[in-house]
């Protein structure tokens, strides 16, 4: 077990990881609000029928709008999207959790799944992702 830091220690950045904190919550509010609305089937249908109008209704920022339009999941995260809410949008877009993982890691979906299975065989994350990236 790695040595835990003190609870009050100043956090170091975690590679490949964004904490959804106050800054992100503020920046992503509109995008996350739109995603939250997708709990309603009628709202999902309205988004599907006219994506542009629906994004306008939730006052998405330009960055958020672009990321949604291009299905750019890392862009959605960078624009303040929270994965718990984005998961609802992913459903509309027909993306599974592995598809979303592939889009964020830059792997193919098959390579992403293989990377998960490699960890299941006892290989470390670091080794599994390195093999997935470089063969």
């Amino acid at each position: 077990m790695p040595h835990p830091a003190s609870p009050t220690e100043t956090p170091r950045a975690i590679p490949g990881t964004t904490l959804f904190d106050g800054d992100a919550a503020q920046k992503g509010y509109q995008l996350n609000a739109m995603c939250f609305s997708f709990n309603s089937a009628a709202n999902r249908a309205a988004f599907a029928a006219d994506e542009e109008a629906y994004c306008t209704r939730f006052a998405l920022t330009a960055d958020q709008r672009r990321a949604v339009a291009t299905r750019d999941v890392p862009g959605m995260i960078a624009a303040g999207g929270n994965i718990y809410y984005l998961a609802k949008l992913a459903g509309i877009l027909g993306l599974s959790v592995q598809d979303v993982g592939a889009l964020q890691t830059g792997l193919s979906v098959d390579a992403f799944k293989a990377m998960l299975l490699a960890q299941g065989r006892g290989q470390s994350y670091e080794q599994s992702i390195a093999e997935a990236r470089h063969g």
């Binding site: 790695p2 590679p15 490949g16 990881t17 964004t18 890691t105 830059g106 998960l116 960890q119 994350y125």
Partner: peptide, 18 residues
């Protein structure tokens, strides 16, 4: 587990065992 970010797909059996 980690769903978001470049580290998506990260798991850590050592931590879980702890």
């Amino acid at each position: 587990h980690q769903l978001d970010g470049e580290r998506a797909g990260f798991m850590n059996p050592d931590f879980d065992r702890f």
